[in-house]
């Protein structure tokens, strides 16, 4: 059984659309994911590629229960996201890092890391601090444990956010375009951390536009377009066979400059 099973889910958002005939805004729905199914095992790094607005982020947010799904179901480690009582456990299983850096501004780095394990897992403060130090060391920011979010660069904040997600000892990390808001230098420092984690066997599910990351670190690549899965292949197949045979993928890769 796969760790995450996405079973033909549909997700749509209410939007306002301008109706030319009636000359007013009318309520409409935008279907982002349509009858979408995919499985993820707890191994390696899966990268989700595809043009903007094709539902990659939405898929991650649905897995984490941040969005409620209209149809279908997602089973994470035997638990359904539709079950409100399991949601906490699911979020413990899948740590998530966002595009916008959201370190809690009222806490320093150390407290940002220890807050969740202490309150939710009942970890003792001492153990939490110890674990936090290990993780900070891993992301190369041990010296910043007393810093506040505004004393850190965007890249450093994202590295802390990764460490914060790892504090809960998740089985998988969901990464939602975590380098999109960063400049190239910071991006590469964050990607280096991710590469390190991948080599240590941390399972990741990443939405990204960083082709270098996809080529070097990914083991599996999903290509999505308009709410459905175009291709699900190993990295090598994707960059050789699919790139030649699938026109949609070829034009996307060409457009992105790869």
């Amino acid at each position: 059984m796969a760790m995450i099973e996405v079973k033909s889910i549909t997700k749509s958002f209410p939007v306002k659309k301008y109706d030319q005939a009636a000359k007013k805004y009318v309520k409409d729905t935008l279907t982002v994911l349509r009858d979408f199914s995919v499985n993820f095992d707890q191994e390696g790094v899966t990268v989700l590629l595809g043009p903007s607005g094709t539902g990659k982020s939405t898929l991650l947010r649905c897995i984490n229960g941040l969005e409620t799904i209209d149809k279908g179901d997602i089973i994470v480690d035997g638990m359904s996201v539709r079950d409100k009582h399991q949601l906490r456990k699911i979020r413990e299983t899948c740590g998530m890092v966002f595009q916008q850096t959201v370190l809690f501004p009222h806490l320093d780095v150390m407290d940002n890391l220890t807050l969740a394990p202490c309150t939710l897992l009942g970890m003792s403060k001492k153990d939490a601090v110890e674990r936090a130090k290990q993780l900070l060391d891993k992301v190369g920011l041990l010296s910043k444990e007393k810093a506040r979010h505004n004393e850190l660069s965007g890249g450093e904040q994202q590295r802390i956010a990764i460490a914060r997600a790892l504090m809960m000892n998740p089985k998988a990390l969901l990464l939602d375009e975590i380098t999109s808001a960063l400049d190239p230098e910071m991006t590469s420092e964050v990607l280096a951390i991710l590469e390190n984690l991948a080599s240590e066997g941390v399972c990741m599910l990443a939405v990204t536009h960083e082709m270098a990351f996809a080529q070097h670190v990914a083991s599996r690549i999903l290509f999505m377009d308009k709410g459905s899965l175009v291709c699900d292949a190993s990295k090598d197949d994707f960059f050789t066979i699919y790139r030649k045979e699938n026109e949609r993928i070829a034009s996307f890769l060409k457009f992105i400059g790869e």
Binding site: R91, G95, F98, L120, R164, A165, M168
Partner: peptide, 10 residues
């Protein structure tokens, strides 16, 4: 973002 980050932590 803060609501979501906290929710994602559980």
């Amino acid at each position: 973002g803060y609501y979501e980050a906290s929710a994602a932590l559980g």
